[in-house]
Write a protein that binds this DNA or RNA. Sequence first.
DNA 1: TATTGTTATACTCTATAACTATA
DNA 2: TATAGTTATAGAGTATAACAATA
Lengths: 187, 187
Amino acid sequence: MPNQGKTKRVPPAMSKKQGQKQDTKRAKPQAASKANGAAVDYDLLQTLLGYALRRSQLAVFQHFAQSMSARASDDRVSPGEFGVLVLVEANPGINQTSLANAVGADRSTMVPIIDRLEKRGLLERQAMPGDRRAHALRLAKSGKERMQRFRATVIEHEAKIGGDLSAAERAVLLDLLRRLRRASETA
Amino acid sequence: MPNQGKTKRVPPAMSKKQGQKQDTKRAKPQAASKANGAAVDYDLLQTLLGYALRRSQLAVFQHFAQSMSARASDDRVSPGEFGVLVLVEANPGINQTSLANAVGADRSTMVPIIDRLEKRGLLERQAMPGDRRAHALRLAKSGKERMQRFRATVIEHEAKIGGDLSAAERAVLLDLLRRLRRASETA
DNA sequence: TATTGTTATACTCTATAACTATA
DNA sequence: TATAGTTATAGAGTATAACAATA
C-alpha cells in the first residue's frame, strides 16, 4: 500500500495533520460490499501464481507499514530501506553499485535511498580506500542501535504474517518462492 | 519492472525508437559483478518471507512483460489490466466499485485503467439498468476475441514461470500464498 | 575506454479528498 | 444523507540517458 495518509489535494485553507481524524461526511466502505449482490467470480485469476503473488505481497507490505506505524514517524523504514540497512550492516564497506546489484535495482535508484538514510543518521558514505570514485557504506553509530529495533519490529511482523504456517511450511514457501523467482529470471 | 524502454531524458536532438538498439558506449553490468570480490551476505533477508515475496513478484511481473513483448505494442496488457479484463469477462455487468473491491484497489484507481481499456476497444461502459449513477462493464466484441489471445499468452507465461514446480507443488504454493495473505490482512 | 556515483527527467501505480449526479 | 463515478493532486518506486571524476 504505497501512499498512506499523506497530503493530497489539501482541502481549501486547511492542511491535514496526519492521524487527526477530521469529520468528513464520507463513510468508508470497509465491508467491501459487492453492490450487485452476487459474489465476484475470479475465474482464471484464482489459478494464477502471478495474481496470488501480487495480492500476498501487497498484503504483506501493508502489514509491514502497519507494524512500523507504531513508531514515531521519523523512526520508520520502508521495506526497501530496511533491506539496504541489513545489507550494509552485514557487508560493511560495500559500495553503492554492489548494493544495487544485490537488491536488483539500478545504481541511480540507490542514490536517493542512501541520501535519505544518511540524512537520518542511519548510515554513512565513507572514502573507499583504493578507489576514489566509490563510496564505502557503513552503518552510523546511532544506526547500529536503531537497527536493533528495526530488526525486532520486522521479526515480529514476520512472525505475525507467517503465524498460520508451521516452521516446515514456512521453509517450503521460501523454497518455492526462490524456485519461482529463478525460473522467472531464466525463462 | 515498471518503466521499461520508455522515453527518458531524450538525448539532444534524437528521440529513441524503442527496440532500436543504439550504440551507447555504456556496457550493461549483466553479470552483477560484486566489484568488491566477495559475495554479498544477505543475512536476515534470506529468511524473510516479505523479501522473498517481493523479489519473486518482481521477477514474475518482469517475465509477464517479456511474454507480452512478443505482441504488437498496442496489443499488450499489464498484469493489472489483464486482471480487470478477466473479472469483467467473468462478471459481465459488474460496476466499477465492485471491480475495485475485487482487486483490492480504490475506486479512483479504476477510472484511468477502464478509460484506457475502453479507448482501446476492449471493454465498454454501459448504462446500468436501475441505477443511473453506475456503469455496467462488459467486454466489447473485439475485446472478447483479443482476450482469447491474452489468456493464451498468460497461461503460457504461467507455465514457464512455474516450470520448475510439479502440479502438487504449484497447488501448495498457491495455498501457502493465500494463507499468508489472509494472515497479513487479519493481523 | 570503462566504471562509480550522480543528476535530470519521466513513467507506473496507487492513494486521498473533494465534486457531481444520482439515490 | 449516502453512493457511483470522476477529477485534481500527490507521493513512492524505479527506470534511462548522460555527465564528471576517476580508474
